[in-house]
Structure formats: C-alpha cells, structure tokens
Design a protein around this nucleic acid. Structure first.
Lengths: 262, 262
DNA sequence: ATCAGCGGTTCCGTATAGTGGAACGGATAG
DNA sequence: CTATCCGTTCCACTATACGGAACCGCTGAT
C-alpha cells in the first residue's frame, strides 16, 4: 500500500526547484543546472521559473541571470506565529546545555510528525547530534517526539500511529504496538524516556512545554550517551527540564496547538 | 503590450492559498473558506491542499481539520543569506529614528523592484507610513528605491526603467524620463532625495549601504513631512545616514548584490 | 575574423494532468 | 429525526502544461 500520490505535479516540481535554490542562497542557480538536477526539460524549467518569479518566490538578477529565492517566500515564512517557541526557548536551551553538558532540543508537532525547531550543544566532549534543526520524525520516534504523541488525546494517538505505520518500518526498534506501550509509560511518568531506540548508544529525556491554557505546544529534550544516563542523573535532568518548561509556559508566545483528531 | 502571462496556473493558485493561510497564521483556514475566497472549486482546492501538505508547505490538524502553514515553508524562508541586512540594520534604524524623530527604512533590490525590509518610527507626532515592511515598489519610485536604481550600471538602469514602464503609470509624478533625470541627480549628489513625488506632503532621503567590496546592497532612508525638510536638516540627516551606513558596511553579513544586467 | 559551444528563450502539436459539477458521507445543530 | 454544512471522492472533458527542436546572443578558442 504505497499510496500512489495523485498530486499537482507543477507544485511538487516547483518546490523541488525552490529547495535547490535554497541550498545555494548566495551563489544562486542557473537555469540549466536546475533543469538538469530536476530532470525537467529546459523549457519546462524556464516556464516554471517565470511563474515563480512572477509570484515572488524566486527572482533573477536580470534577463538570463541566476535565480535566487524571492522575498515573498521569506515573507510568508516569517508570518508570525506558530513556530516562535523555537526563538523564545533559546535561552532556556542554552541554560540547560550549559548545566547538563549534553545536547538539548525543542520540537513541535506538525500533523503526524515532530519537527526539531532548535538545538544547542553542551560541552561534554561526545556530542549526540542525530537530530538536526528542521528534521522531521514520525510522532513517537525519539524522546521529544514521543512526548508530543503522548500528549494527544487517545483518538489522535491511534490515528497518528496508524498514519505512520509505513514510515515506522525505517526504525527497527519501533512498531505500532511498541509506540502504544511507550505512550502509556510516558503518560504515567509525566516525561518521555528513550532508551536507545533510535540509536543504540543514545538515550534521551523529554518533558512537555505548555501554553497558558495548559495545552502542550512543544517538547523540550536532552540527549546524551547511554552511560551518562544514571537513575540519579535522569531525575536531575527531568527536574531541570520541568523547571525551564514551567518558565516557558508564560512567555507571551501566541502559539496554539492545532486542534483535533489527527 | 500587457504581456499576457502564460504561466503555471496551479502554482499561482497555490501561492494565493498560501497567502490566505499566512494571513491567519494562528486560527488556520478551513477548506471551504479557501475555496470560496480563491474562487476555486472545493475539489480543486482540496487537491491543491493535499499537495501542499505533502510537500510540507501546509499542514492540517488532522483529517478534515484546518490548514496552517507548514514548517518546510518557514524553513526555506529562513535559508540563510540574502535578506539578513534587515536584521542587522535594526539597531541602526532605531538610532536614526531616535535621533531624527522621523520614520526610517531599509530596502533592498529584487529584480526591478525595491523591497522594504524593515521600518522604525521616531517620536515626531506625525508619522509617515506610506511604506510598509515587505512592500514592493518599482525601482526608482521613492527615495530608497531611487538610490538602489542609481547604484546600478547604466545598462541595468535602462533595462529596469523599461521593464517598469507599465507599473510606473500608477504614479502620476513619475515617468521613464523623470526617472533618468532623477538617477543623474542622485548620482551627482551621492544620496537620493524624493521631494514629494510619491505623496505630495512627504519627502525622503536615502543613502546607499555597501558591503566590504563596495557593492551597494541596500538603501537606508528617512522620511518625514515636507515642512521638516529644510536645507540644514537635509544635510544633517545625510551625514547621520552616511555615518550609520558606513558602520553597517563591515558587519559580517554574507549578502551579495545579485550580479548583472537587469 | 570565424566558428564552436553553451546557456537562455521561443514555438508548437500532442497527450496528459488538472478541472469542477455532482454525488456521497459524516458530523453537528435545531 | 431532519436540515445544514464541510470535507472527500468520482469522472468525463478539455484546457494545460510538456518537451523536442529550432533560435538567439554571448564568450572564448582557433
């Protein structure tokens, strides 16, 4: 059941192109390179680019020049709101990173995925960098992601797990049943613990970040190598995380967890 | 010669939708509203949204839920580079706004337009807010925009003026010939002066901001009501602007003016 | 000075991909 | 229980975008 995508092709192509351009923001991209890398004909690429320029998502430095990202794209992207916690949480991440020496993350949910918005590394010499800023993981995979999953109402948990069944196969130590178990435990504990399910040697802890109304809007997590995660240290980290999460609760961020059934 | 656009429709539609969603970043948008506001059928809108979600430009809070902007869009928009001067210049804008009491702008060129990246208002009670953040003006229209035009090589100046001939008609006190004259004067003066051509009562002054290599990457401008713009005050403001522009010159911003002929 | 190579742009006949009216299903309210 | 309202699915039609080929203008080598 590979879900044949019936989609608007031009959009997917356009986005592919935008990604390419975004990958070279300063140098810009030439038409033929774009055409080649996307496998589209020059004519098609050209027409696509004309449209992208017209809508402001791209711009070129003069007739025949290289293409760059357009300001309209930047503008839309900055449209205030939803992903601001990342910014606001940075000081907290830095404090936690300094305190623990480990790597700290903040993630939010988007649909049935978790997205890492920001990351700060501590000074412990072995860094755990399996999760990059912007990375997307199926809900439940990893500590922060699991925390976000466990925070959803039952109906959505099931729906999310079902929707992700396919993607889950990429992770050997995860399965729908395991996720359900993990959600149980996470809810009971009040924090999420990942004992090496993503990567053997790496453990992580996550706590929820709520807004003023008590809705979970993000997860704050710390990852380090398994050896460092002693019982004692775990509870220390949980306390620290919870403390910072509580602080974050009342920063004036207008973020609303998106509503309903997944 | 109104240049009938032969374009990729779905992209334009998609962008229109994204704009709508961006206009309500927190509340989200419902499918039917999007369909109605864009004038597209529900089916079409639905298909479009599916694609946007798949590529990460939008996301919905569960089957049938409202639509929000997706993180992928934000991510692309943040792709480091090009529009950072806006950020970096903010302290300078604030200083200038405080010093002069007037409204201060920073703009960059994109293709044959100028775009206002940031604005700060001073405390003089009559504010001049004809230019908003993100607004786009044909090159040459307005002080900052004129400065950016005058900074281009002759070939590009002509090309830009030609390309904008149509849009220019919306501005009663501008024309291709006038623009050419203004460019001359701007180059001679070393700064741009707009004596009420956009809006009668409003005057503005702009100076170029260069990068380390001397390429003009932005324009810094101050606008105020005509009465305040005395000879003396003009030269005071020019000095102030030039001072701040010089400071900006060596901030570590990796912005390159986009190359060649317009 | 001439030519070859390359990148961007335009053209045009074709088939494919997107369209939207209509019908369906599920939820919510009256 | 019925009336709406919203999102989703279906399908026949045709407008749309596709891409090969030809064209143009530039640059650099012979």
């Amino acid at each position: 059941m590979v879900q044949e995508d019936a989609g608007v092709r031009s959009i997917e192509r356009a986005v592919a192109i935008l990604r390419l351009i975004a990958a070279a923001p300063l140098e810009g991209c030439r038409l033929s390179d774009l055409a080649q890398e996307t496998g589209l004909g020059k004519a098609t690429t050209h027409r696509l680019m004309q449209t992208l320029v017209r809508v402001g998502f791209a711009c070129q430095d003069g007739a025949g020049g290289r293409y760059y990202l357009g300001y309209e794209l930047i503008r839309l992207g900055q449209s205030q709101g939803r992903y601001d916690i990342g910014e606001h949480a940075r000081p907290a991440l830095l404090r936690i990173a300094r305190e623990t020496g480990d790597t700290v993350f903040i993630s939010v949910r988007e649909g049935v995925d978790a997205i890492c918005l920001d990351r700060q590394v501590g000074d412990f010499p072995i860094k755990t960098l399996t999760l990059n800023i912007g990375d997307r993981r199926p809900l439940g995979v990893g500590a922060g992601s699991l925390m976000l999953l466990a925070a959803l109402p039952d109906a959505q948990v099931s729906a999310a797990i079902a929707a992700n069944a396919g993607k889950l196969e990429a992770y050997s130590r995860y399965s729908p049943e395991i996720l359900r178990k993990l959600v149980q435990r996470t809810r009971a504990d009040g924090y999420a613990y990942n004992d090496g399910r993503v990567l053997r040697a790496m453990n992580a802890i996550a706590v929820p970040v709520m807004d003023a109304e008590g809705t979970v809007i993000a997860a704050l997590s710390v990852a380090s190598i398994a050896q460092r995660m002693t019982k004692k240290r775990i509870s220390m980290i949980v306390k620290l995380l919870e403390h910072e999460a509580a602080q974050l609760r009342h920063v004036p961020v207008s973020v609303r967890q998106q509503g309903e059934s997944v």
